[in-house]
């Protein structure tokens, strides 16, 4: 893992100016975070998000979001992609509740008029502060990356229903789907989630974006492989005291961490007793434990029933 000077500065910034990002700012700390992976296999969980393009008070009713003050949006600006089959389509933008008990709830946008957003599925009804951000995609992730091999390096994205989407780097800054023809660089990588990456030669990723200033609700699905992580681009995040302990079914749900040598050997297993994190021997971790969710790599979380992990912002841990 290579931490560059810029990231060090970013890390310093994270702890020196925390307040400004919980107060409705639409632009926050922007920087980059690096990840070097050897030839072989790695899990990749980007820790930065795209800057918000809108933030304000809205009313959510069913699948409609209506701002309290006219936003003056361009019609269709937040529409989903509209490729012709068999090219897969994805939402391009999401609205996120940024305060209150529902903070971190992510709502995919299917389209918009000049005055309202339409969602893929209904959100929690009520009045909220929301931010609109463009999704991080596979294309965004390989911007600034080096060492990628065309049609050999791949990303396995594990979907909520248990299916897997495989994407191959096309050698030209984008990705294709399993058929090696359909463009798929617009495949979404949701905040706090990642994918399994296969590298034929060493690859260096340089993630760019904004440090997420608010909480993130990451859904952990029983039916799939949940590659997830925290959104801290500066450092690994200790398991001790982490909010994931309250998302797991005590003693049953588990977390695996993996080697970074390209082999993905399991090197750590963790559980929860409902409040504290436990190690592989089911012993509670102590405050000084160095066990951590790795930077930009994430972990695999196994759950028996779908649950939600509310990930704290590194700016408000």
């Amino acid at each position: 893992m290579k931490t560059c000077l810029a990231l060090t500065l970013l890390g310093t910034a994270l702890f020196s100016v925390p307040a400004a990002f919980g107060q409705g700012a639409t632009s926050g700390i922007v920087g980059f975070s690096s990840l070097s992976v050897p030839a072989g296999f790695a899990f990749v969980v980007p820790t930065l998000v795209n800057s918000s393009v809108y933030q304000g008070q809205v009313v959510i009713s069913g699948t409609t979001i209506t701002p309290s003050t006219a936003p003056g949006w361009t019609v269709g600006a937040y529409n989903t992609t509209s490729f012709t089959a068999p090219i897969p389509n994805y939402p391009k933008f999401y609205a996120e509740i940024v305060s209150g008990p529902s903070e971190g709830t992510i709502l995919d946008i299917s389209g918009n008029s000049a005055t309202a957003l339409t969602l893929f599925s209904a959100g929690p009804s009520g009045t909220y502060q929301v931010a609109i951000r463009e999704h991080v995609t596979l294309d965004k992730i390989v911007q600034g990356a080096t060492g990628l091999s065309a049609f050999a390096d791949s990303a396995n994205v594990f979907n909520a229903n248990g299916s897997t989407s495989t994407r191959f780097y096309d050698g030209a800054g984008s990705w294709v789907a399993e058929d090696f023809a359909s463009p798929a660089g617009h495949t979404v990588v949701y905040p706090g989630t990642g994918f399994a990456f296969t590298a034929t030669t060493p690859v260096a990723f340089n993630f760019m974006g904004e440090v997420k200033p608010t909480k993130t609700k990451v859904t952990l699905y029983a039916a799939t492989t949940n590659i997830v992580g925290v959104l801290n681009p500066a450092a690994a995040t200790p398991f001790y005291g982490n909010s994931i302990s309250s998302a797991l079914t005590p003693y049953a749900d588990g977390i695996n961490t993996f080697s970074t040598d390209g082999q993905l050997t399991t090197v750590g297993t963790y559980f929860s007793d409902g409040s504290a994190m436990l190690d592989a021997g089911f012993t509670p971790l102590v405050p000084a434990a160095t066990d951590a969710l790795p930077l930009n790599r994430g972990v695999v979380v196994s759950v028996g029933t779908d649950t939600v992990w509310t990930v704290n912002s590194p700016l408000a841990p």
């Binding site: 072989g40 296999f41 050999a152 993905l264 399991t266 297993t269 559980f271 592989a280």
Partner: peptide
């Protein structure tokens, strides 16, 4: 390229 080092954990 995608023949991953597949393994699982039992507790």
């Amino acid at each position: 390229a995608i023949s991953a080092n597949a393994a699982v954990t039992i507790a």
